[in-house]
Design a protein around this nucleic acid. Structure first.
Lengths: 210, 210
DNA sequence: GGCCGCTATGGGACTTGTCATATATAGGTT
DNA sequence: AACCTATATATGACAAGTCCCATAGCGGCC
């Protein structure tokens, strides 16, 4: 749903072809939003249908012509509206937690293995993000300091922090598993010390959908 | 994709109808895996087709008959295999980060508003999770301490920690926005101090798909 | 002579989400 | 007494979104 707006976002920076867009996605937002070629092209033609973008064909010799998509005024206002609108609470989907939830069936060795594998994956991910950050830090020095730079780097920061959080949690869990039953008690204490609020009746159809 | 296995997981505990399952989902895994009725029933009949579960019809007077789904031996082994197998890296999809990424278009006031709204949402979510935790803490005392209890409570802990991380990040971002341009520098420093690894060529088709 | 970079398009499979509908009983409202 | 609504239980159709894969044409590089 927000693929449409991500595309609009890029178009708001400069006119682009589908091919360009694919590269932009991979180079920048890939960590929090993936899209394949087909999706991008479809989104583009839909934007054109809706009058949010216009195509200008740029002849080239040798290569195929570029179909440059220029954002229209309507496109800009729609983008801004989306940016300002509250986001619909999106459904959560964490397969790994499902595994953990049912991992009681496994031997302690096996569940430990499961966690270890996940730790490796998280470390790997952390490496990737940090590399991007290092890269961005050098590239972005060209961009003047200010809100734009701040916001784009913030998305990276977000990813890094969440991975670190995940790592911490995994290590604690690993540890708790190692020294059962003392571990079980420790974990329970963490929970009780934390929980206190009252459960709001939670049928929230509130925010609109996007 | 892992809806199938979540259902199997519950069936491994006791035989259940689709209706039961829906309630189980809502009561326990709702925070990290949602499924609606239709999905659950579809998953069930697919499990039966694949020989991973069998239906026993229990006659009732008054209510519609119960179609109890019993997990088969094949079902159990498939569940265990899934639990042990590494998880395919799943595509990320964070609409809010997309917004942040393009929020440079907005006035500082508007982007601050966007962040504030998100802070409210996160606080709300935190309240929900803590309430569940408090609830679970009392309920689970019946369950003996050990791996099972440890693992199920761990999933809650995970949610809580991530929400807290998100909150911290939001507040920092909010703050950095407030005191631009000093903030911009601060955020960049965070990144440079953190990034150091080298970018692994990252076309990872590695783990198998589930 | 083959593969890679550009550039674009189309089809099909699968997953998700939404909505509608069916039936029977119990319990509360007017 | 008539009526509504909630609870328990199950199923089917369809729209929308995502993913994957295939194809097509040209030019440059190894």
């Amino acid at each position: 749903m927000s693929l449409r707006y991500a595309v609009l976002g890029f178009l708001s920076l400069r006119p682009l072809t589908g091919y360009d867009l694919k590269k932009y996605f991979d180079a920048s937002v890939r960590q929090f939003w993936t899209a394949d070629q087909a999706q991008i092209y479809r989104a583009l033609s839909q934007l054109v249908d809706d009058g949010l973008a216009e195509v200008e064909i740029v002849e080239q010799d040798g290569r195929p012509n570029r179909k440059e998509h220029h954002i229209t005024q309507a496109g800009l206002t729609e983008l801004d509206q989306w940016l300002r609108a509250p986001l619909a609470p999106q459904p959560v989907r964490e397969p790994f937690l499902v595994k953990v939830f049912f991992a009681g069936r496994l031997s302690t060795t096996d569940s430990a293995g499961m966690i270890d594998a996940r730790i490796v994956a998280a470390l790997n991910q952390l490496g990737i993000l940090r590399a991007i950050a290092a890269d961005a830090a050098t590239v972005l020095t060209s961009e003047p300091p200010g809100p734009v730079r701040l916001l784009t780097t913030a998305t990276l920061e977000n990813g890094i922090r969440h991975v670190v959080t995940e790592l911490d949690w995994l290590r604690d869990l690993r540890q708790d598993l190692a020294d059962i039953p003392a571990g079980a008690l420790r974990m329970r204490d963490r929970l009780t010390s934390v929980g206190q609020a009252s459960l709001p009746k939670n049928n929230d159809k509130s925010a609109e959908k996007q």
